[in-house]
Design a protein around this nucleic acid. Structure first.
Lengths: 218, 218
DNA sequence: TGATTTTTAGACTAACTCGCATAAAAATGT
DNA sequence: ACATTTTTATGCGAGTTAGTCTAAAAATCA
């Protein structure tokens, strides 16, 4: 019912008044980069204000307080990267190739950073605060659940595809793939360079597929 | 040369003056608990002062600044837990049983906490700061390296034991075990309860051993 | 041009933080 | 008892931080 109005006058949302000088999407991207560089708590609103080139009151008006800024920045990151990652996982028929594409994409993201790898925008940033802040804790929990669900879907599809045995323990294999993802995030954050991360990813994928009894798909 | 004096007069170290009211070991334990609860940056010296029941100047005199307190607290944790963990890994001839004991011990540690699991004293606490603080980053890196080395030793021993094939890729198997450890830390920090962590650990160990081609040791 | 609306900029308060400086307290040695 | 030595307690000052309030700037509509 609330949506009815938007169909008719789409532009009214920003018709009058001084036009905003900032690009919300770019601002959230810059904010996330700052969070990844400094960590969640160590990032102040002044840092965010400088990184986004938005005045503090504008930040509040646009996104809310610091936690809301982080949550929206992550939501945008997920939205932007889910297409690429889902494509890697599900558009490739061969499970082995799909996993390789997926994890190479992941390593590329985790390896971003001028000085050293910045790691995962979720795992490497809010882990410290997850126990103290229930909202952050819930965000971390749901993020892990999202990844688990994706892996389970892909493994189930491979089993139906006869690439994996019918008796495959889907949860166990998915857990191992998730563990690889968590481990790559931790290692990247600790400073492990990209080639080493890729090596670890590839050998781990091979081991997991071997354990699952995968039959190569020509 | 500096050590010569200590042999003769051991008590001189705290002979005169007001005796200290605090127990350094207990204080570091309380400090680590506080770090695990709040996260590294969010923990202030006031929090540490209250938790350890030491005045701020006493904290400085005894351990140094906040980072030094954390590093010493972690060093003590490693020292205290390494005996138990090494015993689990190396005193048990069967690789499967050794890994089970090791990871059950680890899950017990990660599940500590009144309200929710506190996770790993290293991985779950300083991940956020590792990119900004080079000293913290180095600490994280060496901690990961320690774990890797332990797993490699144990896998090599099992291979020499004929529990694993001679051609076992030691690094690959060790990487997967480390990944399981990293993953359990992340999941615990996200709030996953202990039984679920134990289930994940057991099924993952089984899968890894299967991939490595382990032969059961009766 | 003038009124309206929205964003931006600067400043301000109250609370918190670190690190230290100063003084009191509690033990020992003579 | 008195001087010495070490630890503890209090509190201060410079710097940060979150969040808000007020006023100026920049656009549209009439």
């Amino acid at each position: 019912m609330k949506l009815l109005r938007y169909g008719t006058k789409m532009k009214d949302k920003s018709a009058r008044g001084r036009p905003r000088q900032y690009d919300a999407k770019a601002a959230l991207g810059a904010a996330l980069l700052e969070f990844r560089r400094r960590g969640y708590t160590a990032t102040s609103l002044d840092h965010l204000s400088e990184a986004t080139k938005m005045a503090r009151p504008s930040l509040y008006a646009a996104f809310g307080d610091k936690r809301a800024i982080y949550l929206r920045a992550v939501a945008q990151y997920v939205e932007d990267s889910v297409e690429c990652r889902d494509s890697a996982l599900f558009d490739e028929p061969s499970l082995a190739k799909a996993l390789d594409r997926y994890f190479m994409t992941l390593v590329a993201i985790f390896s971003e950073g001028d000085d050293r790898p910045l790691g995962c925008p979720v795992l490497s940033v809010i882990t410290g605060e997850a126990a103290a802040d229930p909202v952050i804790g819930a965000e971390l929990f749901t993020a892990l659940g999202r990844t688990d669900a994706r892996f389970r879907e892909r493994i189930a599809a491979a089993r139906d595809d006869t690439q994996l045995p019918p008796a495959t323990d889907i949860d166990a294999v998915a857990d191992m793939l998730a563990a690889l993802q968590h481990s790559l995030a931790a290692r990247a954050r600790a400073g492990t360079a990209r080639p080493e991360l890729e090596r670890i990813a590839r050998s781990s994928i091979a081991l997991i597929l071997k354990a699952a009894g995968a039959t190569a798909l020509s």
